[in-house]
């Protein structure tokens, strides 16, 4: 069993949803980035999604764009990203996924990238701007180095395509909650709930949902659905941005927030068990 399978099984037994945290590796700098990730792990995140900074992150909103810029300014690169992940592996065994842009992977050499990722302790790779059609060389590398390749599914993805993605994807499927780029949004859309139903009917893989989710009430609402995990990025990243001058406050704010979010993930009602949690 790989780390994802183990994690999702363990959570199922505990009747919890996965709380997935996203940050950009090296934001705001190498050392602080490790500290931030340590804080997130300590306060109970179940899975880590980590970005390798790219100069032109077109699927990201302003908050995460700035995180990419901050990391690049401190000369973060793919090589150092793998080194940083090795350091993270020293203190945690939870699944680690990479969220990257294709040009960074290609420039490093697709095979080389997957080999080094595996060696560093990565479990999955999601390439934001890689379409299903362009994925064969990448899938091949992922298989060779036993890494899970994650794909996005959006509200506009037709069922036929969801089925194709289901065949190539492993670990979990990443659902895009909104139409648009990353960033916080006020409400959950009705379409988001429909999307979960639609994908669930076409896959046995766990489903994690991200983009636009930042509030406890959004998380709680999602725990009532068939979703297996909730990914939160921009909100955490905004706490880094807000507290660049005071690391202590940064860590306090982040740990307070991630702790609160983890609590939300424990509220879920499992219909198949006898002792339903009272709500």
């Amino acid at each position: 069993m790989n780390r994802y399978e183990k994690k999702f099984l363990e959570l199922k037994m505990k009747k919890e949803k996965a709380f997935v945290s996203f940050v950009v590796l090296g934001d705001p700098d190498y050392k602080t980035s490790i500290e931030i990730i340590k804080t997130i792990v300590k306060t109970g995140t179940d899975i880590l999604e980590l970005g390798i900074p790219f100069s032109d992150p077109i699927a990201d909103g302003k908050t995460i764009q700035k995180a990419h810029q901050r990391a690049l300014k401190k000369r973060m690169n793919t090589e150092k990203a793998f080194k940083l992940i090795k350091e993270i592996r020293k203190f945690t065994g939870i699944p680690i996924g990479l969220l990257v842009y294709f040009n960074n992977v290609y420039a490093y050499g697709i095979n080389n990238f997957y080999r080094k990722a595996k060696k560093a302790g990565v479990d999955s790779v999601l390439i934001t701007d890689l379409s299903l059609e362009e994925s064969p060389p990448v899938i091949k590398a992922a298989k060779e180095y036993c890494l899970n390749q994650i794909f996005l599914v959006s509200q506009t993805t037709p069922i036929k395509r969801i089925k194709k993605i289901n065949k190539l994807c492993s670990g979990f499927i990443y659902l895009v909650a909104i139409e648009g780029v990353t960033g916080t949004r006020k409400e959950l859309q009705k379409e988001t709930l429909k999307l979960i139903e639609k994908v669930k009917a076409n896959t046995n893989l766990p489903l994690c949902i991200g983009f636009g989710i930042s509030k406890p009430q959004q998380f709680r609402k999602l725990t009532e659905t068939d979703i297996d995990g909730v990914i939160i990025g921009s909100k955490i990243v905004s706490m880094i941005e807000k507290n660049l001058n005071c690391k202590k406050t940064m860590m306090t704010e982040i740990s307070f927030f991630t702790e609160k979010m983890k609590k939300c993930s424990k509220r879920f009602k499992n219909n198949t068990t006898h002792n339903n949690i009272r709500r």
């Binding site: 699927a59 934001t128 701007d129 379409s131 299903l132 059609e133 060389p137 959006s154 395509r161 993605i165």
Partner: peptide, 23 residues
């Protein structure tokens, strides 16, 4: 490289799934 819209090895559809339906 595989996929559609190719000029030899160049071109293709390097877009996220969010844009695929519109594309």
């Amino acid at each position: 490289m595989s996929g559609k819209g190719k000029f030899g090895e160049f071109g293709g559809t390097f877009v996220s799934e969010i844009l695929e339906a519109s594309r």
